[in-house]
């Protein structure tokens, strides 16, 4: 419980920093700072459309943040979330396209399963390489992901492309498969429920299930866990698999929810899962507000670009700075924001 609270505090500090930083940057760069600040902060909340879009943007971030959390909990630095998201979405989209005549109730679960398994499988390769040859997971997952990007894009440009798209993109699958919208006219879709369901599921897995204990122990001291009787090689494999699987799901749910086809360029949903997981200290529940924070900054900057003179790059800068500041845990200690419990 104490760790939960301190993670929450950490998030609170992140939000505070984000807001202060945003104000400072806007004052420096904008010609009408008061208007720009208003748009930046209130824009995402100004109406149903923007609010829905902000939450909708957070959906894949929540799922990939969960995916990053679960791998990092097991001390497996999965840097390939973006690649796993990519390959998972590609296979899922292809299947959805091929099954266009089947009923939605069959297609959606099957497609999500396939995305999950493909994403997970490509992540599990890294844990295999680690167990077999002690190859760094960080390095191998990154290299695999980088090799996967062009591979996936190849399909979206050639064998599985929509010639009418005018860019690398898959054809649309049957529109009926799309998730229902929750808050029209915004993008917000029922994938939100799936993502929250996953958060609750993974909360129980991590806190109440034996697997969660095994993952946590493997992450905190793999040698000790192995000695104690945790089958660490299998746990690492499972953690990587779940992580990659969630990345695949994140991509596919976003496709079912908003785009209806796969677009061939980086969405950064996978990459952004990494800072989200770290800000949330791998806590499944806190991943949700952390993802919303990222989404808010993104959408605030977009609103600022639409209605004031903010450039969209500001979002990236603010997100990066939040993350950079949050890394310096000792900083908070130094300024006494949170105290560590100490006992001799």
């Amino acid at each position: 419980m104490t760790t939960f609270l301190s993670s929450l505090k950490r998030l609170f500090i992140a939000i505070l920093f984000a807001l202060i930083l945003a104000v400072v940057i806007i004052i420096i760069t904008s010609s009408e700072p008061s208007e720009a600040i208003k748009v930046f902060f209130l824009g995402p909340f100004s109406n149903k459309y923007f609010l829905g879009n902000m939450v909708s943007y957070a959906i894949p971030l929540i799922i990939s943040g969960l995916g990053a959390s679960i791998a990092f909990s097991a001390d497996m630095w999965n840097m390939g979330l973006e690649g796993q998201l990519y390959i998972g979405s590609l296979c899922g989209t292809y299947l959805a396209y091929q099954m266009s005549s089947c009923p939605k109730t069959i297609v959606v679960p099957i497609v999500l399963m396939v995305s999950f398994f493909i994403g997970g499988g490509s992540a599990a390769i890294s844990s295999y390489l680690k167990n077999r040859w002690k190859i760094n997971v960080f390095l191998s997952s990154l290299l695999i992901a980088n090799a996967l990007f062009p591979f996936v894009t190849f399909f979206l440009e050639g064998p599985f492309s929509d010639p009418k798209a005018g860019m690398a993109a898959s054809p649309y699958f049957n529109r009926n498969f799309m998730f229902s919208k929750i808050l029209p006219p915004s993008e917000l879709h029922s994938g939100l429920l799936i993502s929250l369901g996953l958060v609750i599921l993974f909360y129980f897995i991590m806190k109440r299930r034996v697997l969660g204990y095994e993952i946590k122990m493997t992450g905190e001291n793999a040698l000790f866990a192995y000695y104690g009787g945790v089958p660490t090689a299998r746990i690492e494999m499972i953690a990587m698999f779940l992580s990659g699987g969630l990345a695949g799901l994140a991509g596919m749910i976003n496709i079912f929810g908003s785009t209806g086809r796969m677009l061939g360029y980086m969405t950064n949903f996978g990459w952004n899962g990494i800072p989200i997981a770290i800000i949330a200290r791998y806590d499944p529940i806190i991943v949700v507000p952390a993802a919303l924070l990222f989404s808010f900054v993104q959408k605030g900057a977009e609103a600022g670009a639409l209605f004031a003179d903010i450039t969209p790059e500001i979002a990236q800068l603010i997100q990066a700075t939040i993350f950079y500041i949050i890394t310096a845990e000792g900083l908070f200690e130094a300024i006494g924001i949170w105290k560590r419990k100490s006992s001799a």
Binding site: P275, Q316, A328, A334
Partner: peptide, 27 residues
């Protein structure tokens, strides 16, 4: 300095530095 004085994990700080470099240069 962040790692040395604020006991941060070097790995996470490094990722943050990568992000901030991209953000800062583009911005």
């Amino acid at each position: 300095f962040i790692c040395h004085y604020f006991h941060a994990e070097i790995f996470i700080v490094g990722m943050g530095a990568n992000l901030i470099a991209t953000g800062l240069t583009t911005f």
